[in-house]
Nucleic acid binder design. Structure first.
Lengths: 227, 227
DNA sequence: CGCAATTTTGATGCTGTTCAAACCAGGTGG
DNA sequence: CCACCTGGTTTGAACAGCATCAAAATTGCG
């Protein structure tokens, strides 16, 4: 049991959400948390579930919703250190989101009641969470602008630059299938394929095996992104 | 001076953000706040400004951004009791939003430093704010889904139902020009006009003078909204 | 090697944008 | 009270981008 606690404590300290907490409080968080393992394609939660707070420890989780036509609309990908469940947690409503592990993943779960208690006792957690959620709101609003104004090619170019930036270089691998990337960009796999092909033919990028993308001409891509 | 304070205090108590605070804290908030008057079309803040927290006391404020093509993209309308400025407030970055008074308006402004101090001292404010921002995130994400999936007609129908609901009846007035409603729905004034015309011809709604809208057949409208 | 999923390619049609012009409404000043 | 003027709104015609459907080609994997 102690082993488990120390393990959790170490993890809690690495998550920005709890980094600012006094150590005693970190211990309490570690006690409140439960770790869960999820295998590939395993569902973490779905619409109607009364969720708590999830924190990704290891793996990759996709959050999406279903459109009325039955298509998946990818909302975001969560990597280690990210948290999910903020909406349902606060509003006392249930989500309409699905969360599924894309890779074997490990998540911490903190019960709803315990977490709201924690929020009340430790403002820094609430403030930190507020910052993160504000950031997400900002990107969502940007997405709205992009969807209603820019053609697909621009959104794609932006996303490629962003992915390259995250990877810290001109070569990277798409984090998901192209079909899902397409849904994230608000388009279809077919159109995405055509746009990528066009970029490659223009000598701006090179597509390698296993969803590898190499950016040959970042400046040209930048021009496309903000045309 | 005391008059001013009492006036502010009364207002502070009516804003949900501060409703849960002990009275002493409410007094402190009232002291920290400054009221500002804005006339029609007056700019409240713009991109690059280092804003604080704004709370709408009276009037109507539109928040928008400019797309690269120079069009306004309406993000949201703020009515009395709503607050703005959360993004810039926390991230220590500057906004890329514009805020403009659509009507003669009165706003409370709380300085950035004071507000972050307040947040640290009173978790309930942070939690309340988190709830509101989470809600906004939810609607923004819905908007993304809608934009990338549904045709304009559906979005419009949803919005009409929502406005009718807010107004508490089948008759209401559009809160803004149709041009702005169009930008909010991610389309153009022309298309919006055509859709409204179609709905009227179908006997679902009736368009009156001064942007009045009367919903004649709510069920039909509902069917359009979730086709 | 062969299966199953992903990705690509092609042809077609629709939705919505764009540009242009007419139209209307409310507000102003004579 | 009316002519006028300035946004806002409507209408029309032509065009562009993207979705859709169907089918071929590729990839990854057991």
């Amino acid at each position: 049991m102690n082993d488990g606690h120390d393990y959790l404590l170490h993890f809690v300290q690495k998550v920005r959400l709890f980094a600012g907490l006094p150590e005693a409080a970190q211990h309490r968080v570690a006690f409140a948390a439960v770790t869960c393992q999820y295998r590939h394609d395993e569902r973490i939660y779905g619409p109607g579930d009364r969720t708590g707070l999830f924190i990704v420890h290891r793996g990759l989780v996709k959050v999406y919703r279903l459109t009325e036509s039955g298509n998946e609309q990818l909302i975001r990908l969560m990597s280690p250190g990210d948290f999910l469940g903020e909406t349902a947690l606060l509003a006392d409503t249930t989500t309409d989101h699905f969360a599924v592990a894309l890779q074997p993943s490990e998540l911490c779960v903190i019960d709803r009641a315990r977490f709201t208690g924690l929020l009340g006792q430790h403002p820094s957690v609430a403030v930190q969470m507020l910052q993160t959620v504000s950031g997400r709101l900002g990107t969502a609003e940007e997405m709205v602008s992009a969807l209603s104004g820019k053609p697909v090619g621009q959104r794609l170019a932006q996303q490629l630059l962003l992915l390259a930036d995250e990877a810290g270089g001109g070569v990277f691998w798409l984090p998901t299938t192209k079909k899902e990337l397409a849904s994230y960009l608000g388009t279809t796999a077919e159109t995405l394929s055509r746009r990528l092909g066009a970029l490659q033919k223009a000598g701006v990028i090179r597509l390698g095996p296993r969803r590898q993308v190499e950016i040959l001409d970042p400046e040209a891509l930048g021009r496309v992104a903000s045309a």
